[in-house]
Amino acid sequence: MVVGQRVFLFQLIVVAVLVLNHGNVHGLKLGYYQKTCPNAESIVRKTTYGFISRAPTLAAPLLRLHFHDCFVRGCDGSVLLNSTKSQAERDAVPNLSLRGYHVIDAAKSAVEKACPGVVSCADILALVARDSVSMIHGPSWEVPLGRRDGRISRLSEALANLPSPFFNITQLKQNFAAKGLNVKDLAVLSGGHTIGTSHCVAFGIRLYNFTGRGDTDPSMDPKYVAQLKKKCKPGDTTTLVEMDPGSFKTFDEAYYTLVTERRGLFESDAALLKDAETKAYVYQASVHGSTFAKDFAASMVKMGKVGVLTGNQGEIRKHCAFVN
């Protein structure tokens, strides 16, 4: 009987451990550096504020940097690595317009002075993305930490995994689903386009040659097409256009209003009206006082857990652009 009780007790312990492990399946947790680097988050926030206070428009690129990192190999800081003998993610065409690396480097340098070899570049990137959005009056969210840095970065994987501004709704849903993100996450995270700018080349085909016959995209408001043509000439690769005209520095619901008015800049923005669920969210979020801010925070936490390396996986890089 005693032996039977011990076996039963052991089984209970095993089940409890499995449940605990499942509850922390990603190996990330709040306050991860509480003992090893207690000031890590405040150091990153102070460094980020130093840049955003001088250049608020950096918030959009820093948010995009985190997004592009998580969609390739997971949130492992691989987008930060420089090319070596083989080309890295940051040299893929969709990433050539990424910027804000210097902010991550500055935050890493400041954290390294306080706690050498403790805080990963992947965690710093996740924190900087959160802090930069909240500093321009966007939502804030708690960032579970404990990510480790990857050692691999491949240009080909960036091309294969990043969602394109030319994607239709089917391609977008498949792309997000492959990362464990659902249709609502797609609609919510697209709202990140409420801040920032885009090069004309990312949407020029909608203005001048949509079906290869010198036509414009019929799903786009003709008055908006006329405005964009004044800014973007055929083949323009340098001019920048506001993603959310008149409000591109402010994190708000205005993006969704533009999409309802057929003024989304990318084909992927317009595509949100082609699915019942994403369309419903677009119209709901276009109303002032919507749940967009809360939803965005929740989807960012979810995205920040995609494919993370934890425990003994990967490494803690000394410099974000190089493996140790």
Rank of each mutant, 00 (worst) to 15 (best):
L240K: 09
I205E: 13
A280L: 03
E267S: 13
K223S: 15
A298N: 04
L240G: 01
G214A: 06
A254Y: 13
K229Y: 03
A276T: 14
T239C: 04
K279L: 10
K279P: 02
K274V: 08
K233S: 13
R262M: 10
K233L: 11
A271C: 08
Y255G: 01
L265D: 03
S268H: 11
A297T: 05
M300T: 06
F248V: 03
G212M: 03
S290F: 01
S299A: 14
L273G: 07
F292K: 01
K249C: 08
F210S: 09
Y281G: 00
Y255L: 03
K274N: 14
T250L: 11
F248G: 06
V282R: 00
K294C: 05
L207W: 00
Q284H: 11
D217T: 03
I205S: 13
R206T: 00
T291N: 11
K230I: 08
L228W: 00
F292Y: 10
D269W: 08
T250I: 12
P234R: 02
R263V: 09
D244P: 03
E242L: 12
S299W: 05
T257I: 07
T237E: 13
Y208R: 01
D217N: 13
K230F: 02
K274D: 15
K279Q: 11
V282C: 02
L207T: 01
T216V: 06
V287A: 08
K249P: 05
P222V: 13
K223P: 04
A297Q: 08
T257G: 12
A271Y: 04
F266C: 10
S286K: 04
D244T: 15
G235R: 02
Q227S: 13
G264H: 08
D252V: 05
K230E: 12
D295F: 03
K294E: 14
A270W: 05
V225H: 07
F292R: 00
R263Q: 14
R262C: 09
G246I: 09
T250K: 11
D269R: 06
G246E: 10
N209G: 05
A293H: 04
Y256K: 00
P222I: 14
E277T: 15
A297F: 05
P234T: 09
K230P: 01
G289I: 02
G235E: 04
A276E: 13
A297H: 07
V225A: 08
K294T: 14
A297R: 05
D275I: 10
F266Y: 15
A280T: 06
D252E: 10
Y283V: 00
L228H: 00
L228N: 00
K279V: 07
F296M: 12
R262I: 06
A297S: 12
A285S: 05
D269I: 12
K231D: 11
R213T: 15
V241C: 00
A285I: 00
C232G: 01
H288V: 12
K223D: 14
L272K: 01
N209Y: 02
L258E: 02
S268I: 15
G214C: 05
D236H: 01
P222N: 13
T211H: 15
R213S: 15
T278V: 10
V301I: 12
E242F: 08
T278Y: 10
L265Q: 05
P218D: 08
S268Y: 12
Y283T: 02
K249W: 11
S268F: 11
T278C: 10
P234F: 06
C232K: 01
F296Y: 15
P234M: 06
S290N: 13
D295Q: 07
